[in-house]
C-alpha cells in the first residue's frame, strides 16, 4: 500500500477521472429520470475537469499545461452551471407538458 501511496502520478488522477466519466455515461444511459440524466452529465464533465487539473498540476509532472489546465476547468465549470440551468428549465418544461419526468416517455416531438 505504501508503495502505491508514494507514487501518485497523473495516471492515478486520470483513472479517477475515467471512473467518473464511465459512471456518468452509465447514469445517462440507464436513468429514466430526466434529472438523473442531468446528474450523469455533471459526472462526465467533472471527470473531464479532473483530467485537466491533473495535466495542469505542477505537483505531478515536469512540463504541464500550466494555468491552461485550470482555466479550461474553470470554463467547464461555468458551462456546466449554464447547462444545468438550461437542462433544468427543459426538465421543468417537459414536466409541465407531460406531467412526468420519465425521459422514456418523451419520444414525441411536440411540447
Amino acid at each position: 500500500m505504501a508503495g502505491l501511496l508514494a507514487t501518485i502520478t497523473v495516471s492515478h488522477y486520470l483513472a479517477v477521472g475515467a471512473f467518473f466519466f464511465v459512471t456518468g455515461v452509465l447514469c445517462m444511459a440507464t436513468k429514466r429520470n430526466a434529472l438523473g440524466v442531468l446528474m450523469g452529465i455533471e459526472l462526465v464533465l467533472n471527470g473531464a475537469n479532473l483530467n485537466f487539473i491533473a495535466f495542469g498540476s505542477q505537483y505531478l509532472r515536469e512540463e504541464t499545461l500550466g494555468l491552461d489546465g485550470q482555466l479550461i476547468a474553470l470554463f467547464v465549470i461555468i458551462l456546466a452551471a449554464a447547462e444545468a440551468a438550461v437542462a433544468l428549465a427543459i426538465a421543468l418544461s417537459f414536466y409541465n407538458a407531460h406531467s412526468t419526468i420519465d425521459v422514456d416517455q418523451g419520444d414525441e416531438l411536440k411540447g
Partner: peptide, 27 residues
C-alpha cells in the same frame, strides 16, 4: 478535494461554490 490536492485551489473553491453550492442546490 482532489483539485485542492493537485494545487488548483481556486478551481477547487470554484467547484465547491458553483458546482456544489449553486448547480446542485438548483438541481
Amino acid at each position: 478535494g482532489l483539485f485542492f490536492l493537485a494545487g488548483a485551489e481556486f478551481v477547487g473553491a470554484m467547484q465547491l461554490m458553483i458546482y456544489v453550492g449553486g448547480t446542485l442546490v438548483l438541481l
